[in-house]
């Protein structure tokens, strides 16, 4: 961890830059910054043991000037960190925060046909099994081995 990194906290702007690097948006899907995702991430890091520490270590590993560099440069900077458990924890909290934002839920419904309400209690229709699909499979001779 760099000297500057050791003092970085989750309340600082660099977290917003880091999240924007992960989820930059594309014109259709909103970016982390547009959603103010840092706030939701801060709320989530305490929900599992070790996540806050992991996030702080990732922030601490960022070089000076990270926040002033371009998206492409920031992605390049992050790639060496990407396989670590700490980075995995960062992705988990970032995606967890992103994919429950109201604007993102709306897009999941409109563009993906996904029903965003909780699966229960309403569930979905349980269609009857269509036995006709088995016509060919049923015609096969038994092929299990006698033992």
């Amino acid at each position: 961890m760099s000297e500057a990194g050791a003092t970085r906290g989750l309340g600082q702007a660099i977290l917003e830059v880091l999240l924007q690097t992960l989820l930059p948006g594309n014109g259709t899907w909103p970016s982390a910054s547009e959603l103010g995702l840092a706030h939701a991430v801060r709320e989530r890091v305490g929900m599992a043991e070790g996540h806050e520490e992991a996030l702080l270590r990732v922030l601490g590993a960022l070089p000076e000037g990270f926040d002033a560099s371009s998206q492409a440069e920031r992605e390049e900077t992050l790639h060496p960190l990407a396989g670590s458990d700490d980075f995995g924890a960062l992705l988990l909290v970032a995606y967890d925060a992103y994919y429950v934002q109201p604007g993102v839920l709306l897009l999941l419904e409109e563009r993906c046909g996904y029903v965003t309400r909780p699966p229960q209690p309403d569930g979905f229709e349980l269609a009857p099994f269509d036995e006709s699909v088995l016509a060919r499979a049923r015609g096969r001779e038994p092929f299990w081995r006698e033992a």
Binding site: L23, P24, W29, Y95, D96, Y98, C112
Partner: peptide, 28 residues
């Protein structure tokens, strides 16, 4: 969506600029 974004079953969803397009290709 969360598990899909995290890679689910052998999915290659990158973070960064290609995240959103790839997510939409795979989800569902």
């Amino acid at each position: 969506p969360l598990i899909t974004a995290l890679g689910g079953f052998a999915l290659d969803v990158p973070w960064g600029r290609n995240h959103h397009d790839r997510f939409e290709q795979l989800f569902g």
